[in-house]
Each structure stands twice: as structure tokens, then as C-alpha cells.
């Protein structure tokens, strides 16, 4: 069976490689993007099964990627992981059907979201 593919948008390299490592170990195929334009290009190249994104990604908001992803995949898994528990952003993420988690992320629980 083809492994499920996860797209990660995270501009902090250490977090990105930590998430990617754990998810790869759990059998997922992972694509890591460190900027919004890269992630948008990746999304256009093929719709992943799941999305893991930060909120504050340079001049962009990771939720923009969630909106784009939702147009292509209304039911795909989305996890929004951020260091800032902003109620407005949390509500908006949850309205989009995303799981909102605040850093530090318990990385070992990550694969369960995408299972």
C-alpha cells in the first residue's frame, strides 16, 4: 500500500526535522517546506493526505495554506501547531476542521493525528 503523504509547513528548521523524523519513522511520506510559497507550490504539485503547519510563518499565516488545502481536500487531516495560543486563530483553525495544538508539541503523539 502506498504510504500516506504529509506536507509540513514549518519555518523553524529544528522543529521541521523533528516532526518529519517522527512521521517518517511511523511510515509516512513527508514533504517539508519552510516557506509559504514553497508549500503552496507543493500543494499544486499534488494533494497530500495530511497537512501539518505552523501559524506564524514569516509574512504569511499558516492558516492560508489550510484554506487552500481545504479546497482540494475537504476531509484531509490538518494539524496546526503554534507557539502562540491565540483564541481567534484557534477558533478559525477549528472551524476549518483542524486540530490546534500549542508548542511544545508532544512529537510522539503526532503520528496518531494522521493515522
Amino acid at each position: 500500500m502506498k504510504p500516506r503523504r504529509i506536507l509540513i509547513l514549518e519555518d523553524e528548521e529544528s522543529s521541521a526535522s523533528l516532526y518529519a523524523g517522527v512521521l517518517r519513522q511511523a511510515g509516512f511520506e513527508v514533504v517539508v517546506c519552510e516557506s509559504f510559497p514553497d508549500a503552496r507550490a507543493c500543494l499544486k504539485g499534488g494533494v497530500p493526505d495530511g497537512l501539518l503547519t505552523d501559524v506564524r510563518v514569516g509574512e504569511y499565516n499558516g492558516l492560508q495554506l489550510v484554506y487552500l488545502f481545504r479546497e482540494l481536500s475537504p476531509h484531509g487531516t490538518v494539524v496546526v501547531a503554534t507557539g502562540h495560543d491565540d483564541r481567534t486563530i484557534r477558533n478559525e483553525a477549528e472551524r476549518l476542521g483542524a486540530t490546534f495544538i500549542v508548542k511544545p508539541v508532544d512529537v510522539h503523539s503526532l503520528p496518531r493525528y494522521f493515522a
Partner: peptide
Amino acid sequence: REDLYYRLNVIH
């Protein structure tokens, strides 16, 4: 404010 920036900037 950084929080306002990211609240307003959902679609950039």
C-alpha cells in the same frame, strides 16, 4: 502588534 498582524493576515 504581532498578534494583530497574524490575525489580520490570514490570507495574504
